[in-house]
Design a protein around this nucleic acid. Structure first.
Lengths: 200, 200
DNA sequence: GCCGTCGTATGATGGGCATCATATGACTTC
DNA sequence: GAAGTCATATGATGCCCATCATACGACGGC
């Protein structure tokens, strides 16, 4: 019994992890159950032994993808060196390498718009992740109060996610790179000003 | 002959306009040719007399949607009153009314992520629109040089689009509203600081 | 070492979608 | 007012996908 459960749980996890990759790379509607299962080394039939349907998988995959996304940002902030944590996050996030690898990148930049059109279960799961991880990342913001830090986090993540999504849609590499660099530069400037001139 | 052409052109336009709405509301993959045509008061068969395929429609619809999006922003900036144009844009864009009406809202906030996964024709058309309209909106930014204004525009539109997409994905109305309000507040503050302290 | 249980595979079903060939019907032209 | 042309409609085809019923096969308990 114990071996059986372990095996199932491992497979379940492998499917979710793979789905978190594929969905970010190709969109929620861009990949089907059969392809997903085969990418996980299985066939399509066993899927419904693990999940009630595609929605249920999306729910789990979104949560998993959100966790991965946050880990990258935390890692960047923690290894900031002499840069500020915010600048380190900007450097990681608004980088061509991140733009060119959506499958392993931030879920907000690749799936937020599609998640907005999903059933409530999915959006609820997304909301939970966002709240949990937001609190964790707000700690690196320069604001005085917790409330201000949280607002600054929303401000920062919104712009980074938006800029990355737009940079991915732009067909000219030069302009796409310039977009990333410009937004990064303006955010760095804004946060420098905010840190200096504390709330009036 | 002339009447025929007029009729066809009008119908073509009606389809594109309707598509621009539906795509923003339901996603590029969220609505099919048949539904689209029936929403335009036609049946599915005649579609291929107007467009080479769905991609061709997406290309035209994206351009059309981008134009509509820009008009709203320009209108907001022009009727700013005693607010700054940037604050007026923030007020229009990061508003629950805009969040709750994606079909008539900004294309960046509803389709950028899906456009990023489209064939090159679509992304090229998107890029053209973005360049043209960006130049037009940059005029309202507070920067000293044209280059700085353009950077500030990228900074602003990225964050507004990202915030709106995230707010739409959040399942809790309270948090969603707070997200919009927070980002708006932080942008307003950032632009105030930027306008005061000109480039160092 | 046999049996039952549980995880996975095979195969089938039904629906939705893009696409296209052909029919219809109106408007223009002579 | 007849004939032809052009826009749209009807209907069909084939593909892909989510879902599910059933079959297989391995591993643990006895």
């Amino acid at each position: 019994m114990s071996h059986h459960s372990d095996r199932k749980a491992e497979t379940h996890d492998r499917i979710v992890r793979q789905a978190a990759r594929e969905f970010r790379g190709k969109g929620l509607q861009g990949i089907g159950i059969a392809d997903l299962m085969s990418k996980a080394g299985l066939t399509h039939g066993g899927f419904y032994a693990h999940f009630g349907g595609k929605d249920a998988l999306i729910e789990e995959a979104a949560t998993c993808a959100a966790e991965e996304s946050i880990e990258h940002l935390v890692a960047a902030a923690e290894s900031a060196g002499r840069r500020s944590p915010v600048e380190a996050m900007l450097h990681y996030y608004l980088h061509p390498a991140h733009r060119d690898n959506p499958a392993e990148g931030c879920v907000l930049a690749s799936l937020a718009q599609e998640i907005a059109r999903q059933p409530d279960v999915v959006r609820k799961a997304f909301t939970r992740s966002l709240k949990a991880h937001g609190a964790r990342l707000a700690r690196y913001m320069p604001g005085d109060s917790g409330e201000e830090k949280l607002q600054q986090f929303m401000f920062l993540i919104s712009g980074m996610a938006g800029a990355l999504a737009i940079a991915r849609a732009i067909a000219e590499p030069t302009l796409s790179n310039a977009w990333l660099a410009s937004v990064r530069r303006q955010y760095a400037r804004a946060f420098r000003l905010m840190a200096k001139k504390k709330v009036p």
